[in-house]
Design a protein around this nucleic acid. Structure first.
Length: 445
RNA sequence: CGGGCUAUAGCGCAGUCUGGUAGCGCGUUCGUCUGGGGGACGAAAGGUCGUGAGUUCGAAUCUCGCUAGCCCGACCA
């Protein structure tokens, strides 16, 4: 993309309403624009990042054997009356009435709809296990939306639901989500720590929240420092192997890691003093096993081997995709702007032409641009008639991980400069070497 | 929902107390010079002062109502 042809409304000054770094930077870098309280338009670059995250979530879910579908945003109130949640949910649920006077609602979550889909089509235990998910806009009419997309009223979320014959199978589904979530966040360049979560009135031990450590996080978290060193890495996973997934689950849940909701001071005291950490975290996902809570009242049953009608065991599992954009920025920025991890960056590299209109500089930039495109990469070429300082400031603000700087001075010696946004370190090399290096970084060599 | 606050040009703000021609910086447009970290000079465009009513010869300014938004708290992916 050539910046002169793109729509990237960068702001030099920070809009007054933005308090935290991610919100400020998203507004300044032209990623989003507030439409009304807690509701945002996603401008081209923000939309690009959102789509990248969505794709990663889709890929990792499908690797785990989970099946995508798409449910609507507007739902009939009838299903919610059936589960008993129409009255329980309160004012957080946006209720609307259609022209026939029917009660509708903008879905805050989808347990009822998915259960209805399931029960109308599945009759036999032979159709289990089944895990369906979708990534769709949700609406929760928060009393006080804030922090930009981190706590909006309208938000984009992946929510998945497993249907299993037995508790043991459902817990395997729980582990599948646990492991696939670890992989998902790691691919995004995020350190998200699974923490034992509050299960609310249902009880049991089976809920974990995934938290990204950040000063601006909403929850206070307590953990053993060793969890921050754990990486999932590239290991091969057989998602149908119960024992293998259980051992990964055990591995990750052994070190102490809890939010203030489930914090146990006595247990925490047993963590070696030097490893005890207290911090703040942003919740970016949660997994939950809730047994037959919805299947019983909504009559989601299958016939088991002995011919008995039994309610299915279910769980629900969410990843806040739009929130992740904010969380990523909270975890990856400095005083000059965003620093995108390679896995989610809106463009793979920026090309800065220091002297637009200079024959050599223009030609070199064009060569770099075409060369990167040919490698299957998306460069952002700053071909505006701006001075060097303005171009550098823009690039730092939008935070592409790699920048190629092209100017007459370097070209005299046949070199351009490749700079890491994260470390600020630069290296001079030929244009072709820069193309090859960037391609290698992104595995497109 | 309780408490605090804001609304004036695309963005950041002054002007309101004490009523009298609506301003500044950034950004935008044009020109000249410049050219490796938000450059200089010159010119220009851009405003129902959130909204409705009232007071007044006259309202951005005073009064009352309404709306929208922000911050702190309780609540939440």
């Amino acid at each position: 993309m050539r910046l002169s042809k793109y729509f990237l409304p960068i702001l030099k000054e920070t809009p007054a309403e933005a308090q935290i770094a991610s919100h400020r930077l998203m507004l300044r870098s032209g990623m989003v624009r507030q439409a009304s309280a807690g509701i945002y338009s996603w401008l081209p670059m923000g939309f690009k990042v959102l789509r990248k995250l969505e794709n990663i979530v889709h890929e990792e879910q499908q690797k785990a054997g989970h099946i995508p579908l798409l449910m609507p945003t507007l739902q009939s109130a009838d299903l919610w009356r059936e589960s008993g949640r129409y009255d329980d949910y309160g004012q957080e649920m946006l209720r609307v009435t259609d022209r026939h006077g029917r009660d509708m609602l903008y879905g805050p979550t989808n347990e009822e709809l998915i259960t209805d889909i399931f029960r109308s089509s599945v009759r036999s235990y032979k159709d289990l296990p089944l895990t369906l998910y979708h990534i769709q806009w949700k609406f929760r009419d928060e009393i006080r939306p804030r922090f930009g997309v981190m706590r909006g009223r309208e938000f984009f979320m992946k929510d998945g639901y497993n249907f299993d014959l037995t508790e043991a199978d459902a817990l395997h589904a729980y582990n599948r989500h646990f492991v696939s979530y670890l992989r998902t966040y790691e691919r995004m360049g995020l350190k998200a720590i699974p923490m034992k979560a509050d299960t609310g009135p249902i009880g049991g031990d089976y809920s974990h929240e995934f938290l990204v450590l950040a000063e601006t996080g909403e929850s206070e978290v307590f953990y053993d420092a060793s969890v921050t060193d754990m990486t999932f890495g590239d290991r091969a996973i057989d998602f149908s192997d119960h024992a293998a997934l259980q051992s990964i689950y055990d591995e990750w849940t052994t070190p102490y890691a809890r939010t203030d909701e489930t914090h146990d001071a006595d247990l925490f005291a047993k963590v070696p003093g030097t490893a005890q950490r207290t911090s703040r975290g942003i919740e970016v996902g949660q997994i939950f096993y809730f047994g037959t809570k919805y299947s019983e009242p909504m009559n989601a049953v299958v016939i088991d081997e002995s011919g008995e009608r039994v309610p299915v065991h279910m769980g629900s599992h969410g990843i806040g995709v739009s929130r992740l954009v904010g969380a990523l920025i909270e975890a990856n920025h400095d005083e000059n702007g965003i620093i995108w991890p390679e896995g989610v960056t809106p463009f793979h590299a920026g090309i800065v032409n220091l002297k637009q209109g200079d024959t050599d500089a223009d030609a070199a930039c064009e060569g770099l641009y075409q060369g990167l495109l040919a490698k299957g990469l998306e460069p952002l070429y700053d071909d505006r008639e701006e001075r060097a300082g303005a171009k550098f400031a823009s690039m730092d603000l939008i935070g592409l991980p790699w920048r190629v700087t092209v100017g007459p001075r370097g070209l005299k010696n046949g070199v351009v400069e490749l700079t890491s946004r994260r470390t600020g370190e630069s290296e001079e090399m030929s244009p072709q070497a820069a193309i090859d290096r960037i391609a290698q970084i992104y595995g497109r060599a």
